[in-house]
Design a protein around this nucleic acid. Structure first.
Lengths: 161, 161
DNA sequence: ATAGATACGTTTAGAATTTGAACTTAATGC
DNA sequence: GCATTAAGTTCAAATTCTAAACGTATCTAT
């Protein structure tokens, strides 16, 4: 089991990174989102070693990001499927994919599209409860009621780019 | 320098994870987005060791996610600031923050809001060129013209959750 | 029923990475 | 000059990862 712990911040982002921010863990979640469910397939598609993969799958299962089930037609098989918590990481993966398309790639490998209209996903935007778009330039980080003075001091100068 | 390389996929997501998917790298990008610019501040806020931090900052600079500049008032200082490519990772961090709020936290530590209206960011959504929202349930991954047969076979069953 | 193959692990030694402390170098302040 | 600060570098010890072998249960074919 990975013992390394990132500095325990109250920062929600630091906590999320502590839970899934490990490089291999993200690769595994990517594969799960692509539809991979079995140990050997995760291995083949990520290149992770057996020991590491077993460890990370156990961690993701304990964190309720994946759910482990036994195959009922073939008793040898174990399936790891995304829970709702896991599926909720889709926007993270989608934004990464769009970033990659914009900055890392010129080839047209794969695109996310609407199943209904076929229109390509070009962007990911923040919205408020009413559905209004909030641009990155207009975004600020606001301390909440449970924030510590120390962390408040750090984020008060920060605003989104 | 980190030698470990994730399986070299043509997959844009795998490439993005290869570039920034390392755990410490993501912590550093988080800090940069929070406004951290100096070596010692990155160290204090992430808990990374000096050697590792120097290595990762060099990598992020080489990847043009950070830009390294010298302080002109104080010649000892070095600043690492986000480039546009780096700032474009904001949606990734914001989605992670929202995921954390939904699944990892019950405390009200910090929220992203509109500077203009004060409205809280509640969600991140995919949109097409015309600005129509494409829900995760309606999203499919479509192979592009430069895809290899092998990768095409893998994603053809995949659809977003 | 026996033999071989498959799926999912565990174990282990060796390799690679990370830590933590000490050390450099260069610039600043007193 | 002398202490301090910022940003690294160096290196031995600790941790983590890999790769190959091994283990166990289940399935398939003979």
């Amino acid at each position: 089991m990975l013992k390394r712990q990132f500095a325990q911040h109250e920062c929600p982002l630091a906590q999320a990174l502590g839970e899934i921010g490990d490089g291999w863990t993200l690769q595994i979640i990517r594969e799960a989102i692509y539809g991979t469910t079995q140990f050997e397939a995760f291995r083949a598609n990520t290149g992770a070693s057996r020991g590491l993969l077993a460890d990370r799958l156990a961690h993701l299962t304990a964190a309720a990001i994946l759910r482990k089930t036994k195959g009922d037609s073939d008793g040898r098989e174990t399936f790891y499927e995304l829970t709702q918590k896991g599926r909720d990481l889709w926007p993270v993966m989608l934004s990464l994919m769009l970033w990659s398309d914009k900055h890392l790639q010129d080839k047209d490998i794969v695109s996310a599209r609407s199943g209904k209209t076929g229109a390509r996903v070009t962007d990911v935007v923040a919205i408020d409860k009413a559905g209004n778009i909030i641009t990155p330039q207009d975004t600020v980080l606001q301390p909440g009621k449970d924030i510590s003075p120390a962390f408040k001091a750090r984020i008060k100068v920060a605003s989104a780019p």
